[in-house]
Design a protein around this nucleic acid. Structure first.
Lengths: 256, 256
DNA sequence: CGCGCCGTTGAGCCCGTTCAAAAAGTGTGG
DNA sequence: CCACACTTTTTGAACGGGCTCAACGGCGCG
């Protein structure tokens, strides 16, 4: 599973049977002999370069995706020119499913942060597949609800946390999500994080300049050490305190 | 349907067969003769006074709800003392479903804003019911995805909009949601909005004092007139422009 | 080398906050 | 109908966190 998190890297000609992210992904409830069916539904496997747009705000939407390898993010542009990052995507994340508001147009964009590999499905196929495998529908509902937890905490960040708290929280969230996926032993306090300061700023509703200053101060206090692409968090509990974050609600892995 | 939106008011001894919000709610895909089954699953109908807590952050969660009448909201408290409103709930809204992170504890609280009536279900029953009626699972997924659209726009507000833009956006969002539910004719530019300035502040990540000032300025510009509980929006398009909001993505009513 | 991208640093400003106090509603009971 | 308490809103004055603008430094890469 480790290598599915490699940012960049060549993407093997992904076979569903040996998919390294399957136990994280939408299709984890399927039994091995149902996998060929899921594969049959898969419309395409795509390898995209860092910086590529997966889909763009305003386009019609008929596809949904599972991120197979690399990092990506969802964002929205304002008429004004600002941009807000809504969510970072890690391998195994499912995205692109959208309720049919906006007259069938995408309400936000998705972009590859590193080189990525992704599996593409048609949303119509997906609904059809749900008819056959109820567990998948429940699984999707569960994953969406899981996402909502992250969204809510993000809302709290932007609404009520100071700049230092926001950045601390974002780093902690990603630190936890990465370690959960990689099943990193608790003794390892270092993860790979391919973010620039500008991306952090766009996620936290700050400017890149201010992110630079805050990061500097966090390093001086030995709370985090971040030198792209290496993030070290000596004491996650301390970081949680700095983030003004109640860490008892640590994300669990359990399934519905 | 109109009277389901009345804030307060006595709640009729709600029968599912004549439920006034059913075509908005989770169970809209059921045919009339399946309704008794849903009713059978309903654990309780509750009438709560304004200000009552429906559930509290940190409690175990086993219930999900449909708001039948009145207004409510979801919010989160920080260790710090701050509070962030995550979402306002209108009649027909489904809430309380939570992926099982946080060790089975609620990650946020829900509170009645006005007197409310709500239908309570057990989440275990809900999952069981999905086995029988796949459309319900799809419907829930769709509703959750719909909610996510609101959450994302809220994120954009808190991250990238000025105080004036945030307030303008919130008022516009609620204006649109209310009118959609009440099926208000386009000629009516007035809705009932039981919000205090403090609630607006807690949703927008601002202070009540500043909300007061901004509202005053918006009234002086004739962009909105808000005198609780009466909100008038003479020109929604103009309000959208002030909100720095791309209104082509107007929320539609369609179902999956 | 030279160019682009990314991060750093400084100085000044402004939006929104904080603190404080008073005014205007709103509801309740006599 | 008024008295009283409580909640909500208004207004003022001063502060400060984060922004803007601008320049420079470092690093990778053709």
């Amino acid at each position: 599973m480790k290598n599915a998190l490699d940012s960049g890297g060549k993407v093997p000609h992904a076979h569903c049977e040996i998919c390294s992210v399957r136990d994280l992904a939408l299709f984890c409830p399927l039994t091995p002999n149902e996998i060929p069916e899921a594969k049959n539904y898969r419309r395409a496997f795509r390898a995209l370069k860092a910086g590529s747009i997966v889909f763009r705000q305003g386009e019609p939407h008929h596809e949904v995706y599972t991120l197979y390898s690399g990092w990506a993010y969802l964002f929205q542009n304002l008429p004004n020119g600002g941009r807000q990052i809504l969510r970072f995507l890690l391998p195994g994340d499912f995205f692109g499913f959208q309720a049919d508001a906006g007259n069938g147009r995408r309400l936000h964009s998705a972009k590859a942060l590193t080189d990525v590999g992704l599996c593409e499905f048609s949303d119509a196929d997906l609904l059809e597949m749900f008819q056959r495998h109820i567990e998948l529908g429940i699984r999707l509902t569960w994953m969406t609800a899981q996402d909502e937890i992250l969204d809510y905490e993000h809302l709290v960040s932007l609404g009520r946390r100071s700049a230092q708290e926001r950045i601390a929280y974002l780093l902690l969230e990603l630190f936890d999500r990465i370690r959960l996926r990689e099943e990193t032993p608790a003794t390892v306090h270092t993860v790979d994080l391919p973010l620039t300061q500008e991306l952090i700023a766009d996620a936290c509703g700050l400017t890149q300049v201010h992110v630079s200053r805050i990061l500097k101060s966090l390093q001086e206090q030995d709370i985090v050490h971040f030198k792209r692409p290496r993030l070290e968090v000596p004491d996650p509990e301390r970081l949680a305190a700095i983030a003004n974050y109640d860490r008892k609600l640590k994300i669990t892995k359990a399934s519905p």
